[in-house]
Design a protein around this nucleic acid. Sequence first.
DNA 1: TTGTAGGCGTTATCAC
DNA 2: GTGATAACGCCTACAA
Lengths: 339, 339
Amino acid sequence: MTGSGPGRRGRATIEDVARLAGVSRQTVSRAVNDMAEITPSTKQRVLEAVRTLGYRPSRFARGLVKQDTTTVGLIISDLVNPFFPEVAAGVLAAAENRGWHVVVCDTQYRLDKELSALEVLAHQADAIVGYLGSPDEVLERHAAGVPLVLLERSSQSPRLGSVGIDVEAGVRAGMRHLVSSGHTRIGMLDGAPYPAQSAQNDRRLHFLTVAEEFGLPVDQHWVHVCDQSVLGGFTAMDELLTEHPDTTAVFAFNDLIAVGAVQAARRRGRGVPEDCAVLGFDGLQLGELIDPPLTTLHIDKRRLGELAVEQVALILADRAPSPAQRPVVRPQLVVRRSA
Amino acid sequence: MTGSGPGRRGRATIEDVARLAGVSRQTVSRAVNDMAEITPSTKQRVLEAVRTLGYRPSRFARGLVKQDTTTVGLIISDLVNPFFPEVAAGVLAAAENRGWHVVVCDTQYRLDKELSALEVLAHQADAIVGYLGSPDEVLERHAAGVPLVLLERSSQSPRLGSVGIDVEAGVRAGMRHLVSSGHTRIGMLDGAPYPAQSAQNDRRLHFLTVAEEFGLPVDQHWVHVCDQSVLGGFTAMDELLTEHPDTTAVFAFNDLIAVGAVQAARRRGRGVPEDCAVLGFDGLQLGELIDPPLTTLHIDKRRLGELAVEQVALILADRAPSPAQRPVVRPQLVVRRSA
DNA sequence: TTGTAGGCGTTATCAC
DNA sequence: GTGATAACGCCTACAA
């Protein structure tokens, strides 16, 4: 009823400060946002009141009246896979350039977490970019009208932006390299966990296509699915070599898996690359450090994140990005010693 | 003057929806937040209006009236150093548990970026946790009253929370291991870039102390400072071996540096660990994968992040955490083959 | 230089 | 079940 005092309802408001300093709210505002039209002495007095009351402006009230703060939500699959932090770094950098905030969610590759993250961010952000596995229509429903930019996934819906990797070119370059090195019995270690989402995983598709083009004696049985981790790669490689002992080369979904594959091969007494070549897909720093250094298709992950933010900017400016001009990063074959 | 139409000032408001559906704002609110007291048919009509107008509630207006959403800001030094994503993962997980949002900033170890991040987050978050290098009073000033939890750094100020690593115990365990393996001429590769902040870098201090306790013939000249990266470690190790060719073991600030040190040693034709042992400090997965596998002081990085969020919760609940009960994670010596 | 009035978009409270 | 009305905390006019 008194309606005053900082302790009343949590934090002090601009009103409380005004009262304590014996000025109007407006004057407090001028002092806090240090604007020009205010006497130094008054300013001092106000700022002192601010300090004793522990006053901090409400970001909500401020955001309500100045419509400028932009927040983009970032959804990634696994912060501990070194691939994603690099993408995130690109997103952060690009966002910071524009004065935008970024709130991050990690799905652990789980569709339920993905959807709840989507819902949370739909309330909290002005746009969302991320690695998403659910079908288009599910995504659109959960995003509830918030612009969405898909990473490494194309979509039919014109309402969804997207930024991609030129997987086909990458796979072609990689396979060409392996084949020209004399390999024909090439296996693939495909990353889970979105096997049902064909859109999600072009790597396997292109692998099979290109293998057929080259007339290789491999089919889908040469593709083993595994977790996107070193352990996953290790396990799957072990299975692959059991089922197809004549394998001489392996195409991995990503570098983590490739590293696991190298270990598995060696554990079985196969030299890499002499007995079995291993090809990665990512270009993580990790690949340079192991023995033998990993041959891989290097992706500019930072750039990927930056491009996503640019897409967001386009969409937010009502310039709906046409699917035709979908930005794409092209993998570069980096030949080291594993293949 | 007309004051209506969704196109007026960007987004449609609840008012626009109400008008189109021929109901009051309140009814729209009921429909959107699906509350109980509303006729299905009305709800349908409202929801349709929502869809055609592309209406989305303003998070600011909502946050203003419901005081519940909590956002914590996370400031880390370098997303690309695998150490930080693990800490971040802990923060994200703990925050999600409480229904909090996390906005992330990356400073690249730069003090200017650190301060601007602090200022931004002071407006945007209800609390901040992070790796910070500026002096206490600077931090407090820039945080502008927002609760702050320091990572891996103790502070004198009772107003700053903190979560740490028991560096002393870690260094002791590591040095004991090296000494008991017969090493006496032990160098150290210290991580930049906060040399002036003694609070920031207990590792060097404890290293020197413990070295003296053991009566080792090493002093500050055996400490070389470098970037917290593989390259940094490589370079510094090279310098160290040049100045002190009789070095038989090296204590690294972190695993990335240690990996670089291993490479530098080998490049010089020194076997690891036979000619020169290398000890890391982090416990990154990377360490298991290189050759030889890295002996290191393993830190539970996720836990560190979780503890930080718990500190935030305490502070936000006005239960100021006493410095006495500062949470600390204790490094565990993991002996592999590099030392 | 300072104060007053109004509105930003939403939810809560209370009538109807 | 539905609709006025009053906050929520701040800022941008404009008036004094």
